[in-house]
Computed example of a mutant assay.
Amino acid sequence: MDRPDYSDLRALFVNCTLKPAPARSHTQALMDVAIAVMRSAGVTVEVARAVDLDLPPGVYPDMREHGAATDGWPAFFEQVLAADILVLGTPIWLGQKSSVATRVIERLYGNSGQLNEQGQWIYYGRAGGCIVTGNEDGAKHCAMETLYSLQHLGYAVPPQADSCWLGEAGPGPSYSDEGSGGPQNEFTQRNTVFMAWNLMHLAALLKRAGGMPAYGNQREQWDAGCDFGHPNPEYR
């Protein structure tokens, strides 16, 4: 089987660690595996650490219009739009994704009412996934929350779109600590590679097909009265 060339794709990895750069991030260490796989396929990859981006809380495109003194989101949103693939990475705290991950999703939500060139929601035609690390249970819960949010906003989620590593319950070594076993864990490494390729495969299918087919999901057409096959169009 020929190795695919995905040099026409762009990916954005957003690390939602609580640690500002240049502090070591275990989440970044696992994300780096997927990043290396994508770069080996020719994908242009950008990496951001959300805690360093000056993102005030809110669900509007520019929180300066709603009382914030500064807002780094509008500029960062241009990177989001340029990416065919978005991967959110988060540590686990008290069984939940990080507060930073929640904030990034909220800011993504703030732009979700915008439309693309086909009249669909703005994130249509892009693929989304997530990576989770921690030394306590909750990885699947965090992945469910994150992937649900991404698909609800319009991202397409392929099979096996998440990867995780968990250490022993309670205090103990984290993913990239010496002796943790994380970088040698076959389950985690396999799932990370599969996730990376599945995201690339789906993103390429979407990009090369011109995005998601537009019929049946255009807001303006719906508002204009098109029923798109609704069994009872007279309900309106």
Rank of each mutant, 00 (worst) to 15 (best):
A224G: 08
V37G: 01
A34C: 02
G125N: 03
V100G: 11
C142N: 07
D54K: 10
A203F: 09
P231T: 03
H152Q: 10
G225A: 01
A169T: 05
C16L: 06
R219Q: 00
F187K: 02
R3T: 15
M144Y: 10
M38K: 00
Q120L: 13
S7P: 05
H26Y: 07
V104I: 14
R24E: 11
V132W: 02
R219K: 01
L88E: 09
V51I: 15
N15L: 05
F76V: 12
A11C: 07
Q151L: 02
Q184L: 12
P159N: 08
T44G: 01
A50S: 08
E186Q: 08
V51H: 06
G113Y: 13
L108Q: 15
N116E: 09
W222A: 06
Q114L: 13
Q96K: 13
E117D: 13
G119T: 11
Y109M: 12
R107E: 15
E186H: 03
F228I: 00
W93K: 09
L205P: 00
A69Q: 13
S112R: 13
Q184H: 10
R208Y: 06
V33K: 07
D32G: 04
D177P: 05
L86C: 14
G113S: 14
S112N: 14
W222I: 02
A101W: 08
S40T: 03
R24K: 13
Q96A: 15
G95A: 14
E106P: 14
F76H: 13
R107P: 15
P61S: 12
P4K: 09
M212C: 02
L205I: 08
H141R: 05
C226M: 03
E136T: 08
W197Q: 07
E65M: 12
E220I: 02
Y60K: 07
Q184F: 07
A41N: 03
A83F: 13
T146C: 06
P20Q: 01
C142I: 06
E78S: 10
W73H: 07
P183I: 09
S163P: 05
P183T: 06
F77G: 11
M1N: 12
T102N: 15
H26M: 02
V59D: 05
V80P: 10
M212L: 14
G154S: 07
S98Y: 13
G67V: 08
A101T: 14
Y109I: 04
G72Q: 09
A21L: 11
E186F: 05
L94S: 14
G216C: 06
D2I: 09
F228T: 00
A23I: 04
P158A: 03
A23F: 04
A69C: 03
Y155M: 11
R39Y: 00
S40Q: 14
S25T: 02
C226L: 05
G211A: 05
P213R: 07
D5H: 07
E186D: 10
G89E: 05
R107W: 15
G58F: 10
Y124W: 03
Q96T: 10
A23Y: 04
D54N: 12
C164K: 04
L150Y: 00
E178R: 01
A75Y: 01
G42T: 02
F13L: 14
D2Q: 08
T192D: 04
A50Y: 09
A214N: 01
G110Q: 11
P231R: 00
S25D: 03
H26V: 04
V51Y: 06
S98C: 12
L86E: 12
S98I: 07
V157R: 00
G72L: 10
V47Y: 14
W73G: 10
K19C: 05
R10M: 03
L153A: 02
E178T: 08
P231A: 07
A196Y: 08
P57L: 06
